[in-house]
């Protein structure tokens, strides 16, 4: 088979095209919220929220409710709960996150393990199954990306100020806490809608890795979001092909590619700073 066929042949399958579009949309959505997550030092929250969605998904499955709705309620509840408990308890947020993350996931596992018959559908939420994505999921992803872009467009300068300097923004009268809650809700919704594609275990990488890579490479927040989105989309598309031709899990393929890009960017910046240091030394 010639290399071009390798690219074109899968496009003959509807499910593959759907998966390609879905992965690209997930890549963009995760890169956008991920840029805020990375700059606010909240990567751990992403992990907690994705695991916290699990009991909501299992319960929704059991009672026959929309699975995304169940996951969203559990995830948003946990995300806002982390903020509220941190403000009131005097404990550090990483401790609260650790507690809620484990507790919610255990609840999901407990209910999950009590289901007597085959629950293959639910396994997909743990590890992701982008090839099994439905037209409805695709619509939800499209709306999510448009929603995120709209929020960025409307509230960009407020989000920039309150993310960079919450104290200065709060003193000047910006509703910092409500903006924080909005971000948490966006993170939770993005995670839940992305779960179908990449799974609970790997979604945090989709959020963190492209944004962290972008921060290594550029010096403006807008550029960081754009580069993160570019990395997210390219890794999703290439990863899906890799997954298809090597027959490995799609979520894992995408995340491994993103990790590889991160390591390359890291090596690039380290070498670049060495060269600058050497040039600086040469001048003296």
């Amino acid at each position: 088979m010639n290399p071009l066929d390798l690219l074109i042949a899968p496009l003959g399958y509807d499910f593959f095209v759907r998966a390609l579009i879905a992965s690209a949309l997930v890549g963009v959505a995760c890169a956008i919220v991920g840029s805020f997550v990375v700059l606010k030092g909240m990567s751990f929250i992403g992990d907690a929220v994705s695991h916290a969605a699990f009991p909501g998904i299992v319960i929704a499955y059991l009672i026959g409710a929309p699975i995304i709705l169940g996951g969203a309620i559990a995830a948003i509840g946990t995300a806002l709960g982390i903020g509220a408990i941190t403000r009131r308890s005097g404990l550090r947020s990483d401790a609260i996150i650790g507690v809620l993350f484990a507790g919610m996931f255990a609840l999901g596992v407990a209910i999950f393990s009590s289901i007597p018959n085959y629950v293959g559908d639910l396994f997909h939420f743990l590890f992701g199954d982008v090839l099994g994505i439905s037209a409805g999921d695709l619509l939800a992803l499209t709306l999510l990306v448009f929603g995120l872009l709209l929020v960025l467009r409307l509230l960009w300068k407020e989000l920039l100020f309150s993310t960079f300097d919450p104290l200065g923004a709060g003193a000047a009268g910006l509703p910092v806490r409500r903006l924080d809650d909005l971000l948490l809700i966006l993170i939770a919704v993005t995670i839940v809608i992305s779960l179908q594609a990449v799974g609970i275990v790997l979604v945090v990488a989709m959020i963190t890795t492209p944004a962290a890579t972008a921060q290594l490479l550029v010096k403006r927040f807008t550029a960081m979001i754009q580069v993160a989105a570019l990395i997210g989309v390219s890794a999703a598309i290439v990863g899906l092909y890799v997954s298809y031709s090597l027959d490995i899990a799609s979520g894992a393929a995408i995340v491994l590619l993103e990790t590889l890009i991160f390591l390359l960017a890291l090596a690039f910046t380290l070498i670049r700073s060495r060269i600058y240091a050497a040039r600086g030394a040469a001048k003296i």
Binding site: D165, Q215, A223
Partner: peptide, 22 residues
């Protein structure tokens, strides 16, 4: 208390001063 690695320029930081009134 400021994250100096934040990807933002001097001009952008100063423009933040105008944000609340806008």
């Amino acid at each position: 208390q400021v994250d100096w690695s934040f990807p933002v320029s001097v001009g952008e930081v100063v423009m933040m001063g105008r944000t609340p009134a806008l």
